[in-house]
Design a protein around this nucleic acid. Structure first.
Lengths: 334, 334
DNA sequence: ATGAAAGCGCTAACAA
DNA sequence: TTGTTAGCGCTTTCAT
């Protein structure tokens, strides 16, 4: 199964290998190769079904034409969209996008980064990393341009969603919701899900607190229940909040659709009147959420904006570990 | 930013490049290199932070250690899970998984296949391809092992879900649903969404028809409404079905969550009693669907099984274009 | 038990 | 306008 090489084409065309190479890789103009020669070679190449060996080219040029994206998982609307945007933007820049997931496992993350570096990827995007700085160190050692996404690091430039602004806007929208209904305006608003140790969650909680304090004069520490993303645990937390009907929440802001799923599984068991005037918000986006029993305000991140900004940072050659924030948008219920 | 090579290590260790190479790539046993030499070299390599240049290795061995997966998109639970299973299984086999999406665009599909071939991927998985055979031809020309997933081709082995069995089981479950309630047992069951030109949809319709005929004695051609996946169009189709309250459907089997989303957006506008006894099924899986206003039976494909079977076919060296079917499972409402 | 040398397919100086 | 040549970093005979 011998593949055609430039030497085969050189033989067939009577030109030298370097002429063939130039004719086929676009440098022929600079090398002043006669256009007729080029066309001749190109037609022979087409006839023979020639494809350049990209490993050989990469070895010679010590780059590969590959752009790598490392992220936690595909099975999540945010990351899935991020990957799609990444592919679009990478292709537009003549790069071959390759995506690998690492399940928030720092070891796997670093192993994958090293593997990609060994394949000489030209740039590396690291999204939602468990340990962005460890990856950055590997990249720095290899002289590889790298940018963090969604979760910032301290050793490379980062592009993240403006979690504070997003949470603040979401909280505002929840206060503004259902102005006509006066059923249970006395209950409080709660922030549910996520971990305070997560960077994004911390920022979102800050945005939530700011608006709650501005609106109600204070924000009790019990109004933030950040015990992780596990749907079952979130369900139990919601149950606790509704234990005393008199003190039932007025509004719930749930951090991430996965935690939201947990909240729902409990709310579904309550008698409809109890939840009727509950205002629900979700920091995340899922189309099905529009069709649930209750209206829900959602936050949708601008993945295209994140990726474009990241490419901009990379190509601008900026090396300072600055953090750029991209504003997400609100999705209101019908 | 010079990277350490085996020559650097040869210098440092006093051994030759070929000895270093063997010591580091695992072939040293076969080459009868003294174990002490090997350990010496390995420790120097570790100290220097040496990483093999995988492009060079790949060029020399004319393989890359890469396993490629081409699929339509990430933003879909089935394909996202497929990619995750693929990565797990590829890593277990010592391969570096790389995934690329092509949005059901045949041109993009072929371009991507050619690119991956040029990078000398060792095997190529092609899922839900628009034109699997075109890709197979490219792979055959390059002597590359390839397998189709989800959508079969005629030129390479294929592993697909058993759509007929899945649809039949789903339809059976829908007939069996709510045996106690006798509200509207006279209405008919409908198959909604997808295109009859799609292979999977055709198989699913066949499974649906078989069960409906067995249960009711016949299955009218108007009971299959396959006008695509567009949620808006599906919404209109559902609206038509409910125009005459007397002839309203008893059950709707919706093909894919994306089409299901459309169905929902109309059902949500109906007065609750009208839809109360409607039985809903969805050929696809989404966790949020469990929390909708109506119970829904879903079909979940066995992605792990698909991938493992595909690897088995590839490594068994089978070249015949046979099609293996993997049975999906039903997800019943709570 | 190890080293020397050739070569994978390509590109880029340098010659001509 | 084109050809010659020397590698990129690795593996792999073939010697020794």
């Amino acid at each position: 199964m011998k593949k055609t090489t430039i030497y085969d084409l050189a033989q067939l065309s009577g030109a030298s290998a370097s002429t063939v190479s130039a004719a086929l890789n676009g440098t022929w103009r600079a090398r002043r190769i006669k256009e007729s020669t080029v066309r001749e070679i190109q037609s022979i190449a087409a006839r023979e079904g020639y494809r350049a060996n990209l490993q050989a080219r990469g070895l010679r040029q010590s780059r590969s034409g590959l752009a790598g994206l490392i992220m936690p998982m595909y099975n999540n609307r945010f990351f899935a969209s991020l990957a799609e945007s990444f592919e679009v933007e990478a292709r537009q820049r003549g790069l071959c996008p390759i995506t690998v997931t690492t399940h928030r496992d720092p070891e796997e993350e670093q192993r994958t980064a090293e593997t990609l570096i060994s394949y000489a990827v030209d740039s590396l995007f690291v999204a939602g990393a468990a340990e962005p700085d460890a990856v950055s160190r590997l990249c720095a050692k290899a002289g590889l341009r790298q940018v963090n996404l969604d979760l910032p690091g301290t050793l490379a430039a980062s592009v993240i969603s403006d979690n504070f602004a997003g949470a603040a806007a979401l909280t505002e929208a929840m206060f503004a919701a259902r102005p006509g209904s006066g059923a249970r305006l006395k209950g409080r608003i709660y922030f549910l899900g996520g971990r305070e140790t997560d960077f994004a969650t911390r920022e979102r909680i800050a945005g939530f607190r700011e608006v709650v304090t501005a609106r109600t004069g204070s924000c009790g520490s019990d109004q933030v229940v950040a015990t992780g993303y596990d749907p079952e645990i979130v369900a139990r937390e919601v149950q606790v909040l509704f234990r005393d009907p008199e003190a039932a929440p007025r509004a719930l802001l749930v951090n991430s659709t996965i935690a939201f799923e947990g909240g729902l599984s409990f709310l579904g068991t309550l008698p409809p009147p109890t939840v009727e005037d509950l205002v629900l918000g979700c920091y995340d986006y899922d189309p099905f959420v529009r069709y649930l029993r209750f209206p829900v305000v959602m936050v949708r991140q601008d993945v295209g904006g994140l990726i474009r900004e990241a490419f901009r940072l990379l190509t601008s050659g900026a090396t300072s570990p600055k953090t750029v924030r991209v504003t997400p948008s609100l999705v209101m219920p019908d």
